[in-house]
């Protein structure tokens, strides 16, 4: 009961925040990007947290999503709302194609294989100029604003769309985590051989998770393209600013929990922006250096993620309750 009250309060606060921000200002953009990255980290969390497979190739699905909807819009005038589902379908297909050969890999080998897949996707987007526009990138055309066309003059609607997306992805994550699939994934994570013995089709469960994660990430790629408006292969398929960042957000926040990626995103994205705002006019790279130091400190302080702050707080509160 208490938990539900907390969730409702958080959602209401999140809905109120855009109302107090400048509707097409800087903090609105940061807020929107934060929500989108939280949702992407949550989608990553399915495979990285529940299946315990450290994927460093999610930029592939993300980029496929951004490119699919934008190409459909540019070439056929199809609304990104519909393009988003085409994006999801292709993203899921790509996840299946990569998961079949890589799912048997463990740990570092899986991470490296997925990293390579993201890079391959980037190279293809660079070379396949007739489809993707090549290294010059794609601009989402500015069509007359309307909800059906997914085109708005202000950032405000984008913030709410991103919020809804984050809620949907989080609900999917929780449903899977608490359901039979979550139990199977946990069994596989603890001991794959034992899971096989008790009758879990480990390959199938992992594949299902990978495909759901791929579909969601690609659909979020579409939302991102609508906010950023311009992207090129190096942005959409970026190992550093998409694949690793999404994993980093989930890890800093707390892997395998629904709250973790949200905490991580609301920590990392604004802090990075703030550092750029405060220090980037000074010495070159100073802002990134300070950002990096902050990350190292946080990881050393909370190796299992920011989410453990709440666990520690709760334990302390309960401890105090027992004492008094």
């Amino acid at each position: 009961m208490k938990r539900w009250i907390a969730i409702v309060v958080i959602v209401l606060v999140a809905m109120a925040v855009p109302q107090v921000l400048n509707p097409s200002g800087y903090w609105m953009r940061v807020f929107t990007l934060t929500l989108l990255f939280a949702a992407m980290a949550q989608a990553w969390n399915l495979i990285g947290g529940l299946a315990n497979q450290l994927s460093l190739g999610h930029a592939a699905f993300f980029g496929i999503g951004a490119y699919t909807s934008t190409i459909l819009l540019l070439k056929f005038g199809i609304s990104p709302w519909i393009g988003m589902f085409a994006a999801g379908a292709l993203g899921g297909l790509a996840a299946l194609v990569i998961a079949v050969p890589t799912m048997r890999l463990q740990g570092h080998y899986f991470a490296l294989a997925t990293l390579a897949f993201g890079e391959v996707a980037r190279v293809i987007a660079n070379v396949w100029t007739s489809l993707t526009g090549g290294p010059g990138g794609l601009s989402v055309p500015f069509v007359p604003p309307s909800f059906a066309a997914y085109s708005f003059k202000q950032l405000l609607p984008h913030a709410y769309i991103a919020l809804v997306a984050l809620i949907i992805v989080t609900v999917i994550f929780e449903v899977i985590r608490r359901g039979a699939m979550g139990y199977r994934l946990r069994a596989i994570r603890e001991n794959a051989a034992a899971a096989e013995v008790i009758g879990i089709d480990t390959t199938k469960v992992k594949l299902q998770t990978a495909v759901i994660s791929g579909v969601l990430t690609a659909m979020l790629g579409t939302l991102f393209a609508q906010v950023a408006v311009f992207f090129d292969p190096d942005t959409a398929f970026s190992a550093a600013s998409i694949s690793i960042r999404v994993a980093l957000i989930a890890i800093i926040g707390g892997v395998g929990t629904a709250v973790g990626p949200i905490l991580g995103a609301f920590f990392i994205v604004p802090i990075e922006e703030l550092m750029n705002d405060l220090f980037s006019s000074g010495a070159a790279g100073l802002s990134q250096l300070i950002f990096g130091v902050i990350l190292i400190v946080v990881i050393l302080w909370r190796p299992r993620g920011l989410v453990t702050i709440f666990e520690a707080l709760r334990a302390r509160l309960q401890g105090r309750g027992a004492q008094s």
Binding site: A228, F230, D232, S238, S241, S280, S281, A284, S287, Q288
Partner: peptide, 9 residues
């Protein structure tokens, strides 16, 4: 003055 880094976003 601000740093764009090398990322369009």
């Amino acid at each position: 003055v601000a740093d764009a880094t090398s990322t369009p976003t």
